[in-house]
Every structure is written in structure tokens, then in C-alpha cells.
């Protein structure tokens, strides 16, 4: 696991994950539970002002009627995806899109019964998707209903995909050292209805609650500079909706495909940079010119 040393604009690297320490789970857990300074109310208020000002300005210049824009961290990485002017792929459940939901349910089972292997835990989830250990509430369009509707071979592939994901996450941390982890807690939202209507959807796979807490975000592929900056997005949503009372000290992005981890400290600069990125996404969606960020100042 490696953390690049070159600074990114607006991103202050967190504690380093040593590339030579084995087991890796120890190093990643060290970073996740290390604590650290938390962005104060003033820093959160500053990021909020920046975001609201940017959104209000965008609304002023928008020519077309502005729909409600749902923005996720993913949209900061690939601007345009999922937005009104971007490539739109309707969501559908597949083995790939369901593996996280099923995998997180399995990890919750493993936390209750640490003797349970991820493969067995996933098999239980898949066998009874509507049960108490299932991937979420049932209902039209839900993962649970979709799973229940599958043929045995299709279910086997979902099970296989979720097992690979859950095993990677389960073995990535020393769970006994993570205080009261919230695994796969519901996404958190912050929305604004004046001017440009936006809904920010913050997601973390594991949340370490409390002051000095942290988020672990599991990501596909390998990191780019944009994906590293987007790590702060979930923290920004937490900061905005809690008025600064529930902000993680850091967000750890982990890319199991390549074994890289990136820890980003959430300070005022990180929140403001992320707020700027959100405004940039909105301006792109409204076909307005996007300001380029000045050189790194962090």
C-alpha cells in the first residue's frame, strides 16, 4: 500500500500507510484509527459559504431551467457522468453493482460472528436476501427483491462477486481495533433548494464515529489525482448536514485492485477545495465556464 508524496492542490495527505509493513491490515487500521484534528465550525461555515455562493452565482447565469442535480463523489472524478448533460446510463442491479451492498451485509454478519468466513456470510445473505442479515429493506427496485428474483446460476455469480469484495474488505482491517465501526451505513444527503437545486450524496463503506473519526471508502481500479481529491466529498456532506458537529478527521481511500491507499486529512482547505469542485461540477452541468483552480496552497 503506498501513499504518493507529491502534494495535490487542496489535499493535505494524512498519515502515511507504509508500503513495507506486513500485515497490511495493521498499517491500514493504524491510519483509520489514528485520530487527528477536526475541522472546526468556522472551517465548515467557510466551505458552506463558498458552496452556496458558487451555486447562487451559477443559478444567476444559467440559461436553461435547472433540474435537481444529484451529485456523488463519482461525479467529481468523472465530471459529467450522471448529470443532465453527461452520459446517462440507467442504473440496474448487476453482480458488480450489488456486490458492495451484499458484501457489506456479509461483513456486518462477520462482525457479529467473527468465526464466520466472508464466503459463508455472503452465502447466507444471498440465500435469504429479505432476512435480518440481508442487504437492506425489501421493496420494488431493492437489492433484496432483485436477489430473490434471480435464478440459481445468476445468484451464484452475484455471490461470487460479493465474496471477492467482502473478503478483500474483511481482510483489509484489524476489525478488533476499530471502535464501533458503522459498516455500510445509509448514504447521507445534503440538499439545497434555492437557485440551483442540488442533492449531495455522501457515501462511506466504513465509518469510525466520534470526534477524530474517519471514513474508509473502497474504490475500484486505481487512484487518479481527481479520485484522491474526491475523497473529501463524503466528509463535506457530513460537515454540511451536521453544521460541523460530525466531521471525520480523515478519509481513507482504498483501492484493493492495486493495493493503494490514500489518507486525506479533512481540514478547512480540504472542505473548501471539495466545495469548489462541487460548484465546478454544477457549472459544467449548466454549461457554464469553469474556473481553474489556482496552484496548490495547502
Amino acid at each position: 500500500m503506498t501513499v504518493p508524496t507529491a502534494p495535490l492542490p487542496g489535499v493535505r495527505p494524512g498519515p502515511t500507510v507504509s508500503p513495507v509493513v506486513l500485515p497490511r491490515a495493521q498499517a491500514l487500521t493504524d491510519v483509520l484509527v489514528a485520530g487527528g484534528p477536526v475541522a472546526g465550525a468556522a472551517a465548515v461555515a467557510s466551505a458552506r459559504r463558498l458552496l452556496e455562493h458558487g451555486l447562487a452565482e451559477a443559478a444567476t447565469h444559467a440559461v436553461d431551467p435547472v433540474p435537481c442535480l444529484r451529485i456523488r463523489a463519482f461525479d467529481l472524478v468523472r465530471p459529467g457522468a450522471g448529470l443532465p448533460d453527461g452520459p446517462r446510463t440507467p442504473f440496474r442491479w448487476t453482480a458488480r453493482t450489488a456486490r458492495r451492498r451484499v458484501g457489506l451485509a456479509a461483513i456486518r454478519s462477520c462482525l457479529v460472528d467473527p468465526g464466520l468466513a466472508p464466503a459463508d456470510a455472503v452465502a447466507r445473505v444471498v440465500a435469504d436476501p429479505g432476512g435480518p442479515a440481508g442487504p437492506g429493506p425489501r421493496g420494488p427496485g431493492s437489492c433484496a427483491d432483485w436477489l430473490a428474483s434471480l435464478s440459481p446460476p445468476a445468484r451464484a455469480v452475484v455471490q461470487a462477486s460479493a465474496t471477492a469484495w467482502a473478503t478483500a474488505v474483511w481482510t483489509a482491517l484489524e476489525w478488533g481495533r476499530v471502535p464501533a465501526p458503522l459498516v455500510g451505513a445509509p448514504d447521507r444527503w445534503w440538499d439545497r433548494r434555492d437557485g440551483v437545486r442540488v442533492a449531495l450524496q455522501g457515501r462511506a463503506d466504513v465509518r469510525v464515529p466520534g470526534p477524530g473519526g474517519a471514513h474508509l471508502v473502497v474504490l475500484d481500479g486505481y487512484p487518479s489525482s481527481a479520485s484522491r481529491r474526491a475523497l473529501a466529498f463524503g466528509a463535506l456532506v457530513d460537515a454540511l448536514r451536521s453544521e460541523g458537529t460530525d466531521v471525520p478527521a480523515r478519509v481513507v481511500g482504498w483501492w484493493p485492485d492495486c493495493g493503494k491507499a490514500w489518507a486525506s486529512s479533512i481540514d478547512g482547505t480540504a472542505l473548501r477545495t471539495c466545495a469548489e469542485d462541487v460548484v465546478g461540477v454544477v457549472r459544467r452541468a449548466l454549461r457554464l465556464p469553469v474556473r481553474t483552480r489556482p496552484a496548490a496552497s495547502s
Binding site: A117, A119, A164, A168, T171, D220, D257
Partner: peptide
């Protein structure tokens, strides 16, 4: 299951 088997694991 104790061998932690997984399939379709992507590496990059």
C-alpha cells in the same frame, strides 16, 4: 470458506 476463496478478482 476458511481458505478465503474468491473468484474474478481484478488486479491492476
Amino acid at each position: 470458506a476458511s481458505w478465503l476463496p474468491r473468484t474474478g478478482e481484478r488486479l491492476a
